[in-house]
Write a protein that binds this DNA or RNA. Structure first.
Length: 681
DNA sequence: GTAGGGTTAG
């Protein structure tokens, strides 16, 4: 059920027009989802669907207003994206008037289906100025060469009103054609406040801050949109201080105080996006706040958006505590307040607090549920994530994506592919996020066949962006299809995206093509692409694979010296492997002793492997005993050491190993190979 | 039924 009531507000503008605005207002008429509380108790929820019943209302005193009702129905259907139903109604109508035709055209114009819009426009018995304006608006928002078509109609139309001019002007500004916009603006007989606003916005969208301010100052009249447009545009141009200066002067001059808060809120969000929380708080504190007083739309005071924006600033800065303090002080919260707070806790991976708020929240929407799902999934709690997923009143694409990504991140590739299959079965269309997750799944378990299917799907449905291409490179190289990986890599390498390079170098290293990996690494440095610690893991692994000792040492050293990257434990493990296999067991041991971490199983495993190759039983014992402590259930160190003792004829020690295994109740895992598995990353 | 601006997500 949607509990959405509307509040209407009328504003008299300076130009005498009356604007009617609808404010969204949420009522909590229904108790929280009953299953929300039962999930933790592990009740299995019955799948149920919610039907959305159209809430179209008949006018109270519906005297015969001819086509009023069916026209209203058409525009209602269009507003809700139900264009086909609208068209069916349109076709079935025995009588139509201009508004009927215009409404139908609006539907196609909004969807940028200009061919269909044009057909109706050409067919309609008579047109008014709105019909022409609609068509112009549709064409110019398609941009490119379509702007010309819009201009053609503009020149052809029998009479133009202010809307025609303004539509055409904003068509030009949005295409970056400021000269033509200015030309139209100058030749207008009667400009209104919208014409001026469009010019100010246009200058700002095209980076001309100076002329934007100049036009703003010259405006004969301003409305609530003028100041908001200026502030928003200044922020887009990085001029936050200038925006603040103008706000302060407007505060003194402007008599329409009720709309000042909108502009303040924009700047508040701007500070948040630029990480300037303190400036944001300063600004927030400057907005008057009448505690306990009556709300007054015409007065300059904090509204719920101000509070939400400030909370959002704190959440972005990971200051969840300050965010909560504000949240608790709020008298009136809306869905966004709750969602911001909950997603803040999710971001801090504090799922206890997120869960508590989720339960308190009067009317969670799909976004809320999605945050909870991805939060639990990120924490590795797939059962809870899945339980929530099963109970969402309304799923959307993000819900599917969060759940699939959750499986993927936790290495549950089967769960991910199974859910993806279900998603397709239920007729949901995957987007780039879905496809990217599924590609990672394919990389995870080297599913080349599925990976190729996804690749096909990608070429058909989305324009591949950088992350998608990177996922494709990773997928192909992980699946051993090095040539395919390289083909895609060669198409994108000039974007100098380090992840693409890492994926390709990693692919070579993983499949033992050490020379190719190192060659690519050299090219990368020549092209001034900055390597990351991940690049060096692959580079060192390639050296280990190929036995390039000198290069291995050299690259290890260059990490910190040349690129300021502190070696991590993976790099040490790799270097231990490199020098150890080369017989430099002392050096390997020194390396272990000198590193700033507790050695992990990869490090000891590398040393043990090296000892095995070079028959150093003493050092092997040190490594094996360390491994036994780290992984008491693993048989590998016992077996390896046993075999080494047997090889050199130390039968007592060999027997001791077997007895230790029995005593510790450790079962031999057949075919367990230490060194390989510790260096697959 | 047409023109310009504002807060939330994977």
């Amino acid at each position: 059920m949607v509990n959405l009531a509307s509040r209407w507000r009328t504003i008299r503008c300076l130009n005498g027009n009356i604007l009617i605005r609808r404010k969204k207002h949420y009522h909590h008429l229904h108790p929280p989802h009953p299953l929300k509380r039962s999930i933790l108790k592990n009740l299995s929820p019955p799948p149920h669907l919610h039907c959305f019943v159209s809430t179209l209302q008949q006018p109270k005193n519906s005297v015969s207003l001819d086509l009023y009702t069916p026209n209203k129905r058409i525009s209602h259907l269009i507003r809700n994206g139900r264009i086909n139903e609208a068209r069916a109604l349109f076709d079935a109508m025995p009588q139509r008037n201009i508004v009927t035709w215009n409404s139908m055209i609006t539907g196609y114009v909004r969807r940028r289906e200009m061919a269909k819009a044009r057909k109706l426009f050409d067919e309609m018995p008579d047109r008014d100025v709105v019909s022409w304006n609609l068509m112009i608006s549709g064409y110019v928002s398609c941009q490119g060469r379509w702007v010309e078509e819009g201009r053609h109609l503009f020149d052809e139309m029998p009479e133009r009103d202010c809307v025609s001019w303004n539509t055409m002007i904003s068509g030009y500004t949005r295409s970056g054609r400021m000269d033509e916009a200015l030309q139209l603006f100058d030749s207008m007989q009667e400009r209104n406040v919208v014409s001026w606003n469009a010019m100010v916005t246009g200058f700002l969208q095209n980076g001309d801050v100076e002329r934007a301010i100049e036009f703003f100052m010259r405006m004969p009249e301003r409305d609530s949109a003028s100041l908001s447009a200026l502030v928003a545009g200044l922020i887009q141009n990085g001029e936050l201080d200038e925006a603040k200066r103008i706000l302060l002067t407007s505060r003194r001059q402007d008599d329409d105080k009720g709309d000042l808060v909108h502009a303040y809120n924009i700047l508040l969000a701007g500070y948040g996006q630029n990480g300037r929380v303190d400036k944001a708080r300063q600004l927030f504190d400057q907005i008057p706040f009448y505690d306990g007083g009556q709300k007054d739309g015409g007065r300059f005071e904090r509204n719920v958006v101000s509070w939400n924006s400030m909370i959002m600033c704190y959440v972005k800065a990971r200051d969840i505590f300050s965010a909560r303090v504000l949240f608790d002080q709020m008298k009136e919260r809306d869905t966004i307040s709750w969602n911001t707070m909950i997603s803040g806790y999710v971001r801090m991976s504090d799922m206890e607090e997120a869960w508590m708020l989720f339960q308190e929240m009067p009317n969670p929407d799909t976004l809320t549920w999605n945050s909870m799902i991805s939060g639990f999934a990120q924490k590795g709690n797939l059962e809870l994530a899945r339980a929530l997923f099963a109970t969402i009143p309304q799923k959307n694409l993000v819900s599917w994506n969060s759940m699939i990504a959750g499986y993927e991140n936790n290495g549950d590739y089967k769960g991910a592919t199974e859910l993806y299959r279900q998603m397709l079965l239920q007729g949901e269309k995957p987007d780039r996020h879905t496809l990217s997750s599924v590609l990672s799944v394919c990389s995870g378990f080297a599913a080349l066949h599925l990976g190729m299917q996804i690749h096909q799907q990608i070429t058909k449905t989305v324009i591949p962006d950088i992350p998608i291409n990177n996922s494709l490179i990773t997928m192909y190289s992980r699946c051993g299809a090095i040539v395919e990986a390289r083909t895609i890599f060669d198409e994108v390498k000039l974007q100098k995206e380090v992840i693409s390079w890492n994926a390709m170098i990693g692919g070579y290293a993983f499949h033992g093509f050490a020379a190719d990996a190192l060659e690519l690494f050299e090219l990368m440095k020549r092209l001034k692409v900055r390597p990351t610690y991940i690049t060096f893991i692959s580079v060192l692994n390639a050296c280990a694979h190929a036995g390039f000792v000198k290069e291995g040492r050299m690259h290890f050293k260059s990490m910190a010296c040349e690129f300021g990257i502190e070696p991590r434990i993976e790099h040490f493990a790799s270097l231990v492997d490199i020098v150890g296999r080369h017989g430099q067991l002392e050096e390997a041991m020194d390396l272990i002793n000198s590193m700033p971490f507790e050695p992990d199983k990869a490090v000891w495993g590398a040393l043990l492997g090296a000892c095995r190759v070079h028959n150093n039983v003493e050092l092997a014992r040190v490594a094996a005993e360390a491994l036994m402590k780290l992984e008491p259930e693993s048989s590998a160190p016992y077996v390896l050491l046993h075999n080494m003792y047997a090889d050199v004829g130390q039968w007592d020690n060999a027997t001791e190993m077997r007895m230790m295994m029995e005593r510790n109740n450790i079962r031999k895992q057949p075919g367990y190979s230490w060194v390989d598995s510790s260096h697959s990353g």
